[in-house]
Amino acid sequence: MSFVSNLLLATVRMAVPLLFIALAELYSERAGMVNIGLEGLAAIGSLVGFLVCFISGSTWLGILCGALAGIAVNMIYAVATVSLCADHTVYGMAMNIFAPALASFIYRVYFGAGSDLSQIELMRGIGLPVLKDIPFLGDLLFNQTPMVYIAFALVAFTVVFFNKTRAGLNYKSVGEHPKAAATLGIDVIRVKYLACVICGALAGIGGAYLTTCYSNTYSEGTVAGRGFIALAAVIFGRWSGGGVLLACLFFGFCDALQIRLQVASFGLPYQFFQMIPYLATIVVLAAIGAKKAGPKASGKPYRREER
């Protein structure tokens, strides 16, 4: 029993950073911006989140600054892809190289080379009154860090926003058919920039979560491919808020499972268990195939003058 409940508890914890990063991509792609630079955005978010928390002692300030750093870096991507019409994939890759380099540079300048691991105090969990006393589910869902609640609330907001509000439908139309959206008076360029701000902020928060709520140190491999797994989660989740939530829970479960199995060992080298999330991503992508469900104008440059 404790194996199962620990596993599920870890699943929720591991799913949350993925959820932030995947929602970042969802908001980006819904406005037609395919951003594969999430890994880099999360890397800079994790560094800034850690550093600010280390200096100020406040995890909240850390997460806020992680979000701001994500926005700042993603603005480079925004200018290049929205205004200069650079290829989204190529520029996303450029960000994946640039942002981690920037993060490790800042870390080394601040802490010096070869310093031992600096640690911070993780964000504490807050139990929601009454709800946390529900047996089993209480500990799992209502006795976590506030970031977990925020992540789930964000999913709910996303579902309502994209399906039930005019603003959300307008936003989505930019990703489906920008020219039609423009004729309806929607400022396509502004929505695309807004999408990049949201994407940068959420990916930065996802990265900052890793250092301020999950592991209390920073290292260069902190993000460990979560930026790319989040991309897969958006495809797996069929570009919907609820789908992305389920996909992230699944990948979070894989991550939690590999940690539990490593502890249990079974006499196998631990690396085989560490492969589980990555292999699961490949298997899932191969299994769902390429049903085109994403925004139709995703990844395409938009130029106002072209008709």
Binding site: L231, I235, I282, L285, A286
Partner: peptide, 9 residues
């Protein structure tokens, strides 16, 4: 399927 994600995994 998206070759980028697969090759990175």
């Amino acid at each position: 399927q998206n070759e980028m994600i697969i090759s990175i995994m």
